[in-house]
Amino acid sequence: MKIPKVAFFDFTSCEGCQVEIANFDQDLLKLLQVVEVVEFREIMKETCSEPLDIAFIEGSFSREKDRERLQKIRQRANLVVAYGSCAATGGINALKNHKPDYKYKVEVYGADATMPHLETQKALPISAAIPVDLAIPGCPVNRQEFVRLVSDLLHGKAPTIPNYPVCMECKKKENICRYELQDTCLGVVARAGCGALCPSNGIPCEACRGFVDNPNLDSLVELLIKTGMQPAYAMAKARMFTANLVEE
C-alpha cells in the first residue's frame, strides 16, 4: 500500500493542537510509520504543494483572505479534517462574534492594530469556507482520539465521535457529580470523548468539545442560574467554547 501523504495547516488558533500532536512521544513515531508527514509547521521546515491524502486543518476561519488558501488546500487534498475546537466549531475565538464593539485589538496591539493582517471578521468553523470531511472537537484535541480517528480513516472505517454528554463518562468513572458538591458543570450537555478529564480531576467541565446534538440550552442556563450565577454570566459560561452554537 502507498503510504498516505498528510499535512498540517493552521489558521486562527494558538497552535496548541499541533503542539499536542507534536508532543505525542512514542505514539507519534508509530503514526509516522503509517503516514508520511509532508508539512507540519510546528515540527519541520519543509513545505509541500503536491496533492495530499489528508489535510489536517487547525484554527478557525476568521479572515476572508484565508478563503483562497483554504480552497487551495481543499483542491489538492483527498480528505480534509478540521481538528480542534477552533476548526470544528469556531471554538473560543468565536466569543468575539458576540461583541459588537470589538476593541480588544487596540488594547492588545496598540498602534499596530491597523496592520492589514489583523483585519478579521467573525470567527467561523473551517466548514464555513470549504467542505470538511471530518471535524474533531477538543481544546486541545485528545491525542488518543486523534490517533483512533486517523486510524479509522486509514482503514476506511467511518470515524465516530461520541454524541453523548460528559455526564456518561463521569458516571462511568463513578465521580461525585459537581452539582452535588455545590459546583457548576457544563458536562450535562457537553460532548463526551475526553473521558471526563476535568470533573475527574476536581474541576467543572467547560464543554471544550462543544455540545451534543440539539442540546437543551434553556435548561442549562436555568440550571447555572440556580447555582447562583447572574443570568448574563450563566449565558457567557454556556458559550465559552461554543459561541457559534449559542444564540444571543
Partner: peptide, 14 residues
C-alpha cells in the same frame, strides 16, 4: 415536561 430535561441520560445510567 421536556423543557427542563437536559438529555444527559444520568437517569438511564443509574
Amino acid at each position: 415536561i421536556y423543557e427542563r430535561c437536559l438529555g444527559c441520560a444520568t437517569c438511564a445510567f443509574v
